[in-house]
């Protein structure tokens, strides 16, 4: 994950100027910070260290395939097949959370 790699990728769309590369870098780090703080809060809500470790493993995996942000952009495509795929994942995930979990929240 270095500056040149980002610039090369952004230059494909003719957007490799300094301010855009900086903004995309900020986005990349925002994603990693989400994984870190997300895994901590999930671990705390569920009261299980395993959940935090699982979250941190996700972070480690995402670091190994960095830069993450261009893959993230691809998944956020407007194509209807991507949309429907994530909708089905969403339905499965919330069904799992609501039906299968039992924890002390309040």
């Amino acid at each position: 994950m270095d500056y040149d790699k980002f610039q090369k990728e952004l230059n494909k769309d003719s957007h490799g100027d300094g301010i855009t590369v900086g903004a995309v870098f900020a986005g990349e780090y925002t994603l990693y910070l989400l994984f870190i703080f997300g895994s901590i809060i999930i671990g705390r809500i569920y009261g299980k260290t395993l959940m935090t470790l699982f979250g941190l493993a996700t972070l480690a995996f995402s670091l190994s395939v960095s830069p993450l942000i261009f893959k993230f952009k691809k998944e956020n495509s407007n194509a209807i097949n991507y949309q429907l795929f994530w909708l089905s994942i969403f339905l499965g995930a919330i069904a799992f959370c609501i039906y299968m979990t039992n924890f002390e929240f309040m």
Binding site: T20, A23, A26, K73, N76
Partner: peptide
């Protein structure tokens, strides 16, 4: 919150 801002950072 996060998806919105990360995608916004990518836009031209």
């Amino acid at each position: 919150m996060v998806f919105g801002v990360v995608m916004a950072l990518l836009q031209s």
